[in-house]
Every structure is written in structure tokens, then in C-alpha cells.
Nucleic acid binder design. Sequence first.
DNA 1: TACGGTGATGAGACCAAGTCCCATCACAGG
DNA 2: CCTGTGATGGGACTTGGTCTCATCACCGTA
Lengths: 190, 190
Amino acid sequence: MARWEPNARERLAASALDLFVERGYEGTTAAEIATRAGLAKSTFFRHFTDKREVLFSGGELLSDAFVTAIEKCPPGTTPLGVLHAALEAASFPFNPDRRDWVVKRQTVIAANTELLERELLKQAAITEAMTTALQKRGLDPRVAAVTAELGNLAFRAAFTRWTAPTNTRDFADLAHEELTASAKAATTLT
Amino acid sequence: MARWEPNARERLAASALDLFVERGYEGTTAAEIATRAGLAKSTFFRHFTDKREVLFSGGELLSDAFVTAIEKCPPGTTPLGVLHAALEAASFPFNPDRRDWVVKRQTVIAANTELLERELLKQAAITEAMTTALQKRGLDPRVAAVTAELGNLAFRAAFTRWTAPTNTRDFADLAHEELTASAKAATTLT
DNA sequence: TACGGTGATGAGACCAAGTCCCATCACAGG
DNA sequence: CCTGTGATGGGACTTGGTCTCATCACCGTA
């Protein structure tokens, strides 16, 4: 399979993040990213459909983790229980080693609307996948939708806390905490 | 203020939707939209920052309706009560006269990922605005977030039902129904 | 060692989105 | 009738993204 320098895709992603941090997303050209990675512009677009997408590759892994975790829950598990399991399974990208990279990436995304749009799309896709997976467990469609949305909310909250400069806690930890809090909040609406 | 043909913006929006329906979003050029509206490409981009944006102008009205409705609720109103009022106030764009236009627009959006992204961004902005407005009422941040998210969910569900071919019911009606159902679902998670 | 197949790459033409600048034109008021 | 102002037109320019064709590195095989 691998020939020449075998890591074209990874090199592109790394160069891209570096350049985005240095010059900003809009100040960086796809051709420049490719050049820094020792490749050509056409090669960049062979690996990524978009200039944006270079920051989002590997996102399917997260979605898959959510979905398969949901599927693996024993039948009869409560929706909230399923959600806890799913968040647990989706914690793998967030370990201390990857923190620097994750924070850099998130800083770049937060600074650019185009990238925010893309992120929202990915999140929506995940939420939809979770909804479907929950429905397959026999949940009422509306309950499934509310559950997935709550999971998404808890995930984002946990992520925000995990990336905070002072944080030392585990992602899964924070996720469970946020989920519990959100679920409790959901019962105090009336 | 208004000179020549005074409705440039509206003409552009109308021409755009027509063309998008005829040839699809990607099959339509910004220059073509402008030409059909009797204007030039440069004028198009003077009125809309984006080719996408031509389908989303007026969206601030919706956000404003949500927020001001939340602000106008008497203190002590329950979060769910506030949400009902907000959805009621945000029903104005959805009357029988505008149905055709709304359905056309939504069909175009649903067929194109770029447009979906933009719509998600707008929805996220509205949800965030609602969260802030709810927090200003003294709600706990987490409760505010959950409430806003639930409102968003109910809104989308109501919208889907309202645009369904067989629907004859009022949007506000559907929204109240969806919200009640979602809120109830949120209490059955454990 | 020579050879052909395969898959990744490079080069460059090409189109459309979006920016920018400057000229122009319609209208208002004096 | 003249002049200022704001909306428009036109066109040059950059960049994202697509596409095609040639090239090159490596593989297995003779």
C-alpha cells in the first residue's frame, strides 16, 4: 500500500493545523498547506474534499463509537444509562496526550464561522445517528430524539470543561457529570 | 432611499429561489441570479455576503421573536411556560400564504449540504440567543441550555409536520403539541 | 535484470465564488 | 440647472475546487 512518504494524509493535516495557527484559517491557502507537506495542491484535494475537511477527518470514529456503544447496551437499559455508556465510549479521543492538539484545533475552529458550520454539521450527523440507534432499541422516536439531543448537549459541555486551561479531570468523568446534571435539569422545567 | 426598481434585495431572493428550484443550488450561478433579477453579479454580493445567504435573509426576525418573547414573560414563569410563549411568538412566518414559499425553500435546503450547514448555524445562533435570554431571567445556565435545546427540538419537529403535504394544522398548534410531548419525553429518561 | 502493471502524485487548464476598485448613473435638493 | 450621494455596472484579481493527462515509484514476475 504505502509508498514514498507514506503519511500524506497525516502530513497534510498536521501542516494545515500548523499554518492555521500561524496565519489563521482564511490566511492560509490550500496550496500552501500542500507545499508545506511536500505535496501539490491537487494532491491535497485528492485526500480532502474540502479545505475545511482537513480539520475533521477521523470524525466518523466518534460517531461510530457512539452508535456501537448504544447498540451494545443490554436490552432494557434506561435511555440515560445508554447515554452514559455512549459518552464513555466516545471519550477515547480525549486523553492527556492529545490535549494540545485538540485545544489547538478547537481554537482554530472557534475563530472561523465556516469551520463552525462544518462542526455543527458533524455534530448534527452524530446526533441523528444516535437518534436512529436509539429508535432501533425500541424507543419512542420522540424519546430517542430528546435523548440524543441531551447527549449532544452533555458532550459539548464536557468538552468545553475538558479543554479549559485549568482542567485536570478525565473527559469521561466530566461527561458523566454533565449528563447527570443535564438530565436532572430536564426534570425541573415545569 | 429607494431608487430605480426599489426591490433589488427581494428580487434577488425571488430569482434565486426560482433558479434553485429549476436547476438546483449548485447548478445555479450567482451571476445568473443577478441577471434574472436585472442586476449584476457585483450587486448580488453587495446585498448578500454569500450565495447561500440569499436563502436566509430575514432570519434575524425569527431570532428576535424568540428572544423578545422570552424577555416579555412575567417573572416566575416556568421554563416550559416561557418556551410555549416563545414558540407562539415565532410562529408568524408560518401562515398559509407563505407555505408554498417555505416548502420550496426547505426543499432546496434539504437537497444541499452547504445549505444545511448554514441552516444549522442559524439554528445554533437562535438556540444560543435563547439560552442567554433564559439565563437573564435568572435560570441556572444548565437549565437554560436544556430548555433552549428542547425548544429548538420542538420547533424543528413542528416545522417538519407543518410542511408535510397533508398538514392542515396551525404551526403554533403543532409547536405547542411537540413541546409538550418533548418535555414529557424528557421526564421518562431514567 | 528487465519489464509491465498499479496506484499515488504533479502540472496545469478551467470554472465559479467572493473581493475590490473605479466609473457611471439616477435621483435629491438647492 | 448644478452638484452631491448612494446604488449600480464592469471588470480585474485571488482562491477554492474539479478534471484530465502525464509521470513516477514500487511491486511482482519472467
